[in-house]
């Protein structure tokens, strides 16, 4: 069980060859909505709670070979982003109430 500080989330993007949406704008929304609950850093940073992989389309082709053993959450559109935000907020709320923080992608 991790301490009560904000989550350290590593951001990993696909290459963005033909994204179906503005990936940077969605990430900005995620960061704003999770301000205080999470900090976002490069995916090659240390001591990460999870990797958030931002795919531009359902092909979800980002190279994840460097993240073996890490907890990975993928989003491939604004809808996924909303689910991710809700999940993190829910889990963080549970954590502050004494429950174990489970960040596995559902």
């Amino acid at each position: 069980m991790r301490d009560a500080g904000p989550l350290r989330i590593g951001l990993k993007y696909c290459g963005g060859c033909k994204p179906d949406y503005d990936r940077l704008a969605v990430v900005q929304t995620i960061e704003e909505r999770l301000r205080g609950a999470a900090v976002f850093v490069r995916s090659d940073s240390r001591d990460l709670d999870l990797i958030l992989v931002v795919h531009g389309c359902p092909t979800v082709c980002a190279d994840l070979s460097a993240f073996g053993g890490s907890t990975i959450w993928s989003v491939a559109g604004p809808g996924d982003a909303e689910r991710f935000i809700a999940h993190v907020l829910d889990r963080m709320q549970g954590h502050t109430q004494g429950r174990t923080c489970d960040l596995q992608e559902s």
Binding site: Y13, G15, G16, S43, V54, D63
Partner: peptide
């Protein structure tokens, strides 16, 4: 740029 490095 992180948002393109996977391809670039």
């Amino acid at each position: 740029r992180p948002e393109y490095e996977d391809i670039m």
